[in-house]
Design a protein around this nucleic acid. Structure first.
Lengths: 272, 272
DNA sequence: CCATCTTTGTGCACGCGTTCACAAAGGCAT
DNA sequence: ATGCCTTTGTGAACGCGTGCACAAAGATGG
């Protein structure tokens, strides 16, 4: 999920810590921070797992990659674990971040408190619109794209957030990378190409919704048992397709693997 | 991933389509739509894969789950494939969506064009602040939380977007679910608990940044000589910088840093 | 000091997802 | 038709991630 291109070992077992584990550490950290604020001294893997919404065995295995920080019969020391995870994630140091594209989303991100809370500091806001230049957003004056390279260089920024329209994303990305950025969080609905060594993570609202729609459609089409029967008012054919817009390459009527689920869900009717 | 809780087979082999494949379909669809607009009649798996940023073998296997829509020696018919994927994802029907929490982020989402583009329609904006009630955001008047149940019921909404502060998220979630919502896109930095049958996908800016920071730190710590030749499995000695705050794995007596607001994350007050 | 109880840490097995590599299928030129 | 070339569709191998189940480790009480 973090690849801009497709390569990279993906294994990314940086030092032995699986990527899946890394992705969960922030979750644990959040739960632990909450416990810390309530002055809870220790937690068991069961409790913490529950708070983080994961399996306790998984949590223990995750922590085992960090080392053995628990005490058998007791659990984990909250404060200590907060520190260890923070350190592992690199949150004990300061991470200046630039946000490029100060539209609705960019502005919202700039105002987002989640940045500053954990070592992330918004070093600059950048936008291509000269009109915005100088105007403060979230207390930080917006700077023009022309300054991009200088800003990154001067502040030693290594993490960039792209919140521009899709059309400008790749271009901005290239400039960020050329300027020294090695980690990018991309909100633009585009696939970014980056050289090896640069990490890209994408946040795509549209994709998330489409995935939800898929499951939603499936739920609506299965609940009744066999026939259609949808809750959300509207009609719309479930799966049994309507007529496709364009004629298939005339080769469409291939044999369908009859191994379709035992639930005999949908008659695989192919457009003739 | 997409689970609010931890259970659920996760297999989710809806009809044989792996979850990982479903997550990529929107990517393919986007690439195909772009080709369609350029009136490109057909594409090979290689070309399309490149455009979507994935491996071509993976793409072919993904499509094989949908059926055989390609022509050997030629490739895939763009228009036809756009239709098939759209139908599979359930985008041929209308999906009314409600956004709860019209702060900076909620407003940005409301203005986001990505919604309407693919069958998703913002049916209503909901916020707990009476001040906002009636005021239009993105051309849609904000309604008060009191109306939540009625709005969902009247519009047959099945997908909800939570953009509230973390403290309010679970409560809002519960009400949404009780009102009939079965798919939730959660932007609040919290783990949501939902009954079985309800899908939750989360988008967490803070987590993404922390993951990036992890890799960033690793890059910074390895590039130079990388004197530390420790191998995985071994007791992980503290990385680069600073020494641990307090005691070793025995019993920590760490002190809390004076800073650090609430859980950070969102400018909101957490319920005790 | 010993017995018991709690909770961690992990070996192991299983299943999903990815990738390779190739046979089959179709187009196209001759 | 025949043969060659392109590209799909997929069988099989492999690796990662997950979860079970249990032995080891340590706390606690007598």
């Amino acid at each position: 999920m973090a690849t801009g291109r497709n390569h990279r070992p993906a294994t990314s077992r940086s030092r032995g810590i699986p990527e899946a584990t890394v992705a969960r550490l922030p979750l644990y950290l959040r739960a632990l921070t909450a416990l810390s604020e309530r002055s809870v001294p220790t937690v068991s893997s069961e409790e913490l797992a529950s708070a983080a919404g994961v399996n306790s065995a998984k949590l223990r295995k995750d922590f085992s990659y960090l080392g053995s920080y628990g005490t058998r019969g007791v659990g984990y020391d909250v404060e200590y674990l907060v520190y260890q995870i923070s350190r592992e994630l690199g949150l004990t140091q300061d991470w200046p971040v630039v946000i490029v594209g100060i539209g609705n989303l960019g502005a919202a991100l700039a105002n987002y408190g989640g940045f500053a809370s954990r070592g992330f500091r918004v070093a600059a806001l950048i936008d291509a619109d000269p009109q915005l230049a100088g105007k403060p957003v979230a207390g930080i004056p917006v700077q023009h794209t022309d300054e991009l390279e200088k800003i990154i260089s001067d502040n030693g920024v290594s993490i960039g957030v792209i919140a521009t329209p899709a059309g400008a994303a790749q271009q901005v990305c290239d400039r960020l990378v050329a300027a020294g950025i090695t980690s990018i969080l991309n909100f633009a609905p585009t696939v970014l190409s980056v050289p090896e060594g640069v990490d890209v993570r994408k946040v795509d609202l549209s994709i998330e919704l489409q995935i939800l729609a898929f499951h939603e459609q499936r739920k609506a089409g299965e609940e009744p048992g066999a026939s259609s029967g949808r809750r959300p008012g509207e009609a719309a054919a479930p799966d049994v397709d309507t007529a496709p817009p364009a004629a298939p390459p005339a080769v469409a009527v291939t044999k369908r693997p009859p191994e379709s689920g035992p639930d005999g869900d949908l008659p695989a009717v192919m457009p003739a």
